[in-house]
Nucleic acid binder design. Structure first.
Ligand SMILES: [Mn+2]
Ligand SMILES: [Mn+2]
Ligand SMILES: [Zn+2]
Ligand SMILES: [Zn+2]
Lengths: 141, 141
DNA sequence: ATATTGTTGAAATCGTTTTTCAATAAAAAT
DNA sequence: ATTTTTATTGAAAAACGATTTCAACAATAT
């Protein structure tokens, strides 16, 4: 069984939640998607196998997955929240193409280090950060 | 006369806009505020001297100021857009305190350089970036 | 003064997210 | 197996910031 389902199972046990077809289905669908997805995307995908599922349940379930460390919210700057996989995925920043909307993942260990130093310089205890670089992607030039 | 008012004046001339008390007043109020302010903040301040002013006018006017390079939108991660001064203000990143909401401005030339390099590495032509470091500020520990 | 036309602000609308609540269904108790 | 308990669901409503619409208004040109 995939580790992510075990995490959900454990949370259900620990927190007195109930095992529902909706939760299992949303997790399955979410794990099968690769990239950054809005609630509407995820709900649309889930409806293919579970037509009666409601948008609100997807909102609630993705919030649960966030708490469980399975999903992470990311925000491209438009008003739409998107989710990406978090479990077993390393932190990364995003290069957002302002022309086609593509979103490339990248990370620079040096930048990460310098961010720590910058925070420290201001007596700030850093807990995380979000870096988006906006520009034109390779394909769009 | 402050340079910012000249910029507004020039835009009015160049673009066939009209000189209105609302525009002048919003600019005056905005320039007197130091920090990061929501439309509601700015509108509230403007209403003190100009009670009849409408929220919608502030939205439109701040968008105009953005176009004129007088104001820049920034986003703390809550769903509220905030504006800060742009004219004669250098680019900077933000350290956001997750406890008190304080927002410290900081910049590291090294980070800026490395961001350019990171973008280039992916064939990406960078046009700008937004970096927010979340954590606990000096006062809150 | 008058005509023209950009601007204003209230109200309506939008798009996303949250809340409410009655019906449902999972788990526990019998 | 049946009943009870209570978490979960999904439709509808509400909340929320932001945008659009439009008739009244006011700045500018004639
Ligand atoms: Mn990502
Ligand atoms: Mn700032
Ligand atoms: Zn692109
Ligand atoms: Zn603080």
């Amino acid at each position: 069984m995939k580790k992510e389902f075990e995490i959900l199972s454990r949370a259900i046990g620990d927190r007195g939640l109930r095992r529902t077809a909706q939760r299992e289905n949303i997790l399955k669908v979410f794990l099968a998607m690769e990239g950054h997805f809005s609630i509407e995307n995820i709900c649309g995908e889930a409806k293919k196998q579970f037509p009666s599922i409601g948008r609100v349940t997807v909102y609630r379930t993705m919030k649960l997955f966030e708490e469980l460390g399975l999903a992470e919210k990311m925000d491209r700057g438009d008003g739409i929240a998107r989710y990406e996989h978090k479990y077993n995925h390393k932190h990364h920043d995003h290069l957002v193409c302002v022309k086609c909307g593509a979103c490339i993942e990248a990370v620079s260990p040096q930048i990460e280090k310098l961010q720590e130093a910058l925070a420290k310089k201001y007596g700030f205890v850093p807990a995380g950060h979000k870096l988006r670089i906006f520009g034109i992607c390779k394909n769009c030039r």
